[in-house]
Design a binder for these strands. Structure first.
Length: 758
RNA sequence: GGGCGGUUAGCUCAGUUGGUUAGAGCGCUUCGUUGACAUCGAAGAGGUCAGAGGUUCGACUCCUCUAUCGCCCACCA
């Protein structure tokens, strides 16, 4: 066995990775160089990981792909910026935190807003540090000096300004709508956060005045304000416009029969009860016909005082009781036990969502989607990833107005203010004094009620200090303002949908004052780096994030926020199963890094993957790529031993060098082309196969046979290390320093030229 | 009900935008360790590229249809 001074037989990643990362960071190359006119820039805004959980293998995937592109462009000597950040992830984080409170026997209602916010803040800060540390272990060469967080003051300020601008532009409205409300999470959701799930539920046929009708939700009958049939349904045409008398569980009542297109004459008996307050279709019908909105289910998921003996029952319990009572009174004619339909559930906790009427802030999306569609049509943004461009367009064309109100604490509070009249004589009459508030009084006891009435026993200050929630009637007057507009104003307690701030991420991160140039030039990061080059993210957040970033970026700046979008697929386990905690097949990326090295994991995550398609990654693949790191190491070790043994005096004798150099040029060309075309998986495959099966298997052997000179072998190795660096930065840097200790870091080298002359 | 993908070697996947004998990793067979690497090397077995039709001088690649698997969306009470 041949021994070389300083190079072990195997590449031991543990001995190098940490030190190498420190040297990279020290070199200052994570930060783009000072501005100079005419520079070419390359920018990636990192998808900010949720600051509530350690990283999973999906994060490792985006870190790898983005780092490859960043390192490549940095070597092309472009002004390269990879701007990292973390996201407060409103509902996600509050949910996780509430679980922790629950474990301690507490709930969010035990704390006032400020206290709860501060607790979550501390928790998130701690977790973000973990996430950042983990990304560094993967070799992420991001500019950590520009790290941003969605709830830091500069960002919040910009997000608030955006809302004000949109209000001025008439893109915001507050209206009473049926929102998807989760009684467990205590908040409403946007259209996108609803999961539709198919399930079996009994379909009940009940007697309804002169009719019979079918429903899966008999408990909502207390909120019925009409009966509807299809306008062309001959069977019922004589009833339309007439009043009918219905005998219900709470006694007799009268309803009008209306005709509406939405009714399917084929379904059930062709007659439906209309419950505008608790069904999205019925709400629409109600709007068209001016029906009363009778809310009989509260925001706690229980029946209200309008339901007599059923008051206080949960929806589920109420349904059972109503069914029993209907049967007992002979009002139930039949039950279809095998009825299959879809129900809307909370994406977060799986609770069945209640459509409930609630005044919320909405964004009119139409003009925004038009801007995004235009940018796509003009090719200002190109999508990479298996048909997801079509999906994006489909979304943009069908998007509904965006509900941006969330009833949680952990987020940016909506900058809307309600004036409360504290003069006694108007307390009862002012519409704003009918605002319902909940607050913790001096004894930390929760008090709830109309503010006008509460002001008789509490001071305005006491209410304001302990305020937990505020619910203003739809007609309430409000002011949009950056700061409290006057003494008697109370701020809206709802916060923005977390995606509202995320949608502005490329704009606000680059605009943040903390990111001003260090040098004296007046060019801001925004001017320098916007629009960004590539947005790289998983396809599953296309509608939540990418689409909305396009809409908001175009709206705020007149330019699309990124010229290319690269979607990566989901990382599945070795057998192709989706990773999940319950399945127990979640792989911890950090564990793999420890065992096989960061380079091995990186390579395993990108080799032979294509944009937009899921990939399977398991230990065997990572192990194989660990072997690849070792192969690179040993290729270098051969050169080093060669130097020591022969003093690099081997000259070629057969003039085959020319052929090898030509091939090497072709490889450089190919890898460059593939990276330019964002064919990352293919590029990784090329360097892997060419280095191993061509360079090592053929050229090294040729050198032994004196067909390739030592000098050219060295030259080729240098080229190879540069080509490999973006993919496997650690081992190549380690080798570089072994072979070329006098040179600057490999990370700072220039990408190989296309042509190398023999 | 609408949309988007996949179907290539035993398994997991590539296939550089139609061009000579279709590739990789893992697995399998046989052989090989004094001189980079056994986390290795050499040789090899294994594919009618889901099926049918079409365009073309030429199709894994483009078009149509079928089968099958998967994902996303959807207001059917």
């Amino acid at each position: 066995m041949v021994k070389s001074k300083g190079m072990e037989k195997r590449y031991e990643h543990q001995r190098y990775e940490e030190k190498i990362y420190r040297n990279w960071k020290k070199s200052g190359r994570f930060t783009p160089p000072p501005y100079h006119p005419g520079e070419k820039t390359f920018t990636i805004i990192m998808p900010p990981p949720n600051a509530n959980n350690p990283l999973h293998v999906g994060h490792a995937c985006f870190v790898t792909i983005e780092d490859i592109l960043i390192r490549y462009h940095r070597m092309l000597q472009e002004a390269t910026l990879w701007l990292p950040g973390t996201d407060h992830a409103g509902i996600e984080t509050q949910y996780v935190f509430e679980q922790k409170l629950k474990a301690k026997g507490k709930s969010r209602f035990d704390f006032d807003r400020q206290a709860l916010y501060q607790m979550i803040w501390d928790y998130v800060k701690e977790n973000s540090q973990t996430a950042i540390m983990q990304m560094k272990r993967l070799g992420a060469s991001a500019d950590w000096s520009r790290l941003r967080f969605t709830l830091e003051p500069d960002i919040v300020k910009d997000v608030v300004e955006t809302f004000i601008k949109m209000q001025t532009d008439g893109l915001i409205y507050r209206d009473l709508r049926l929102v998807n409300y989760c009684p467990r999470c205590g908040t409403s959701y946007s259209e996108l956060e609803v999961v539709h799930q198919e399930q079996n539920d009994p379909l009940y046929f009940i007697k309804y005045g002169p009719f019979e009708l079918a429903t899966v939700r008999p408990e909502t009958k207390f909120g019925d304000t009409a009966v509807a049939v299809h306008p062309k349904d001959q069977r019922y045409s004589q009833w339309v416009g007439k009043e009918i008398e219905v005998v219900g569980l709470l006694g007799k009542f009268n309803l009008t029969v209306i005709a509406d297109e939405l009714v399917d004459p084929e379904f059930g008996t062709g007659v439906v009860k209309v419950t505008p307050a608790h069904d999205p279709n019925d709400f629409e019908i109600g709007q068209r016909h001016g029906l009363e909105l009778k809310q009989i289910i509260g925001f706690d998921g229980k029946l209200t005082d309008l339901t007599g003996p059923y008051q206080g029952l949960t929806v589920k319990a109420a349904r059972e009781k109503v069914v029993d009572d209907l049967k007992a009174r002979g009002l139930m004619t039949q039950v279809d036990e095998n009825y299959r339909h879809t129900v809307a559930k909370c994406y977060r906790c799986g609770t069945i969502l209640e459509p409930l009427p609630r005044p919320q802030f909405f964004i009119k999306v139409k003009s925004l989607t038009q801007l995004a569609l235009k940018a796509l049509a003009k090719g200002e943004t190109q999508i990479y990833g298996a048909g997801h461009d079509k999906i994006l367009i489909h979304w943009l064309k069908n998007l509904k107005d965006w509900n941006i109100s969330r009833q949680i604490v952990w987020g940016i509070r909506i900058p809307v203010w309600y004036r409360i009249d504290t003069s006694h004589k108007t307390q009862a009459t002012s519409i704003n004094n009918q605002i319902i508030v909940g607050f913790l009084d001096k004894e930390k006891k929760l008090v709830k009620g109309e503010i006008g009435k509460l002001l008789e026993s509490y001071s305005f200050e006491e209410i304001e200090t302990g305020l937990q929630m505020l619910m203003a009637p739809p007609e309430a007057e409000y002011k949009v303002a950056r700061a409290k507009p006057g003494a008697n104003y109370l701020q809206e307690t709802d916060t923005f949908d977390t995606w509202f701030s995320s949608s502005q991420w490329p704009v606000v991160t680059l605009q943040a004052p903390g990111n001003k140039q260090q040098d004296k030039s007046k060019v801001t990061d925004f001017e320098r780096f916007y629009p960004t080059s590539v947005m790289e993210t998983a396809y599953d957040i296309l509608p939540f994030w990418v689409m909305r970033m396009m809409m908001m970026g175009c709206y705020l700046t007149g330019k699309t926020p990124f010229t290319k979008v690269y979607f990566h697929g989901l990382v599945r386990d070795e057998q192709g199963h989706k990773m999940s905690k319950s399945r127990g097949n979640v792989v911890n990326p950090l564990l793999l890094v420890e065992t096989y090295g960061a380079d091995a994991l990186r390579m395993a995550l990108v080799m032979s993957t294509t944009a937009g398609h899921d990939s399977n990654v398991g230990e065997t693949k990572v192990k194989g790529m660990r072997n690849f790191s070792n192969k690179i190491w040993n290729g270098a070790r051969f050169i080093k031993i060669n130097r020591e043994e022969t003093g690099n005096k081997k000259q070629e004798t057969s003039l085959k060098t020319k052929k090898y150099i030509k091939h090497l040029n072709q490889v450089v060309k190919l890898v460059t082309k593939q990276l330019n075309e964002l064919k990352i998986g293919l590029a990784a495959e090329t360097v892997h196969n060419q280095f191993w099966h061509w360079w090592c298997d053929e050229v090294l052997e040729a050198n032994k046979r004196l067909e390739v000179s030592d000098a050219w072998l060295e030259e080729g190795m240098k080229t190879w290390l540069k080509l490999l660096q973006p993919f496997v930065p650690f081992v190549t840097e380690a080798v570089w320093q072994e072979l070329y200790p006098q040179e600057e870091l490999l990370m700072g080298q220039v990408w190989p030229a296309m042509e190398k002359k023999v």
